[in-house]
Design a protein around this nucleic acid. Structure first.
Lengths: 336, 336
DNA sequence: CTGAAAGCGCTTACAG
DNA sequence: CTGAAAGCGCTTACAG
């Protein structure tokens, strides 16, 4: 391993001068800088981040909260995987590495201890465990944070225009002549905007259309899995066989619902119309007909990175940043 | 931030003694240890990894090579996402954090420089860029490595029993009465076992069945995307409309193929039979009929972690570790 | 069993 | 513009 002392010896300058040349800060004779930079290149010098981190208190590490327990799916989550690719790219361009925060160390190290352990400079909350009390304290732990999707006190959240999407879905059904429209939802937690906001927009738009959304048309699935969608659709359909359309809060659930409908011999959209949410790419060609909303992963990710970097720089950011969704009108809504 | 010096002051012992107590190495009076541990807990002490890393040369960091350029899909890759969840868990239980190796720093820092920069102790190669010359040098860079899927000189690879799966697929088609069977493959690179081995097993088994696999039944898609599968299937079917079954080298391609077949009005399995590979979970309920092979992500991941930890400990490991696949016989192969 | 000294590789004031 | 000194928080021999 080549150190700045090796470079000092090789060039005849002192360690602090080497440091200055390498980091480009402070006044320095251009020739000196050039000599040092050349020597560094020649020697194949790579700085040691542990030493740097120790003396500067800057680890150049961004903590990521991404859990994979039970319903969460960690890296496998269709939305968050894509989001992380882009976030990682942005953050690396800014000279940071990702560090996945975990409670698996020792006897369950907390996120915040993990951050202290690694001197993490900022945190992005992607996929937290439901009702984890520690998440609620993140806003006041002193480490800059940004959240995608989940609302957390004192933290900027970057999230899709869910309510607007709900409006669009309801309007679409209404304009296509549907009057008995179900909503297949997922567990609604106060801090998790997705399901609540989509339902709210949906409800409000129906009202604007002069309809009243009846509670019997609302069915909540017990999780965000295909299987839950299958079961939820079963309950909804058995209770309300008169429905002609269903807005499903996400594609995974919609796929489960489609499976149930297929088993019942109900054709989409001939006998029942469907709108999903997420446009899960893997499944697109397997279920090419589903009308859905595409969340702008790239924009959510790059805005999250931007907001986080700003918070880290002490620049104020809005409490909520909204990102439009894209309505993808395939062929799963029938005009009746 | 609480340091060992704070604990030294609080307990009256010296820094080295605090260190010993905290790390549990060396002889120490049990009472001393207990006092120190209590003081540490009371003060909310968290060790500083940068300092630890600097003095021990152990960063407790495992580098991950996971790229998301073009055809690779980074975190979104259906197989590698699941694999990483489990790998991460295993590695964290062993006290390590994941550090994603990247070429995005500065003017394109190499993987190895990134490792030096962070003192990475071991590397797992998940999803490297095709023909990246640096990958080939990993075996001799001095850092312990393990690869999943890709063969790399001097590095242990943990990989599915692809050839056996090829045998099973061929045998299945043969026993169901198929005699004109296509193979829809993906780009074959020497170091990437997936496509090559599946084809080899498939070919060999047909031979064992007394058939000869004809080249015209082989079609190579240009990538691992749905779209490539669509186009590949189109070429294959237009050339050989007499085929009754196709072994598709992965599910993404199979989904694309299914889309093409659906557009052509060809029913599966009534008019054409299909076997896929991977059992992509997201899409299962959207395409519930596809007979396929499930790769044992969990086993691949935990074995990779185990092998890597062994290499890091200087324990010899096999050059290749094989993991059985599971044949999932749904209903996409017709008996004729 | 415990501690004084030195070192890991780098940077930050402060002199000159 | 350049360098000597001290420090970041921890650990490793080595004494005692």
């Amino acid at each position: 391993m080549v150190t700045i002392y090796d470079l000092a010896k090789a060039t005849g300058f002192s360690a602090p001068t080497i440091s200055k040349a390498l980091n480009g800060n402070g006044k320095l004779n251009p020739k000196t800088r050039e000599k040092i930079l050349n020597a560094a290149k020649e020697a194949g010098y790579t700085p040691n981040m542990a030493a740097k981190s120790l003396s500067t208190k800057h680890s150049k590490l961004i903590g990521v909260i991404l859990e994979d327990v039970a319903m969460l799916r960690g890296f496998e989550h269709p939305l968050f995987g894509g989001l992380l690719n882009r976030f990682r790219h942005e953050i690396e361009m800014a000279g940071f590495d990702l560090l996945f925060l975990s409670k698996n160390f020792n006897d369950g190290m907390s996120y915040i201890d993990h951050c202290k352990y690694r001197d993490v400079e900022g945190i992005i909350v992607v996929n937290p465990i439901d009702d984890d009390p520690e998440i609620q304290t993140l806003g006041s732990c002193g480490i800059p944070c940004v959240s995608t999707n989940e609302f957390i006190p004192g933290i900027c959240t970057v999230v899709s225009e869910n309510e607007e999407a709900g409006h669009i879905a309801a309007r679409k059904f209404f304009e296509c002549g549907h009057r008995k429209i179900g909503f297949l939802g997922a567990p609604m937690r106060e801090n998790s905007p997705a399901a609540i906001e989509r339902l709210r927009g949906f409800r409000d738009e129906l009202k604007l259309c002069g309809m009243e959304f009846e509670d019997k048309y609302l069915e909540i699935c017990d999780a965000w899995f295909d299987k839950s969608g299958y079961e939820g659709m079963k309950r909804l359909y058995e209770r309300c066989p008169d429905i002609t359309g269903v807005f499903v809060v996400c594609d995974s659930l919609a796929f489960g619902a489609m499976k149930y409908l297929a088993e019942m011999g109900l054709k989409i959209p001939e006998q029942i119309s469907l709108i999903g949410f997420d446009d899960d790419t893997t499944a697109v060609s397997a279920a090419p007909i589903l009308t859905t909303f595409r969340q702008d992963r790239d924009r959510i990710a790059s805005l999250s990175a931007e907001m986080l970097l700003q918070v880290m720089a002490g620049i104020p950011v809005p409490h909520i940043v909204r990102v439009p969704t894209q309505f993808i009108d395939r062929s799963s809504v029938k005009i009746i």
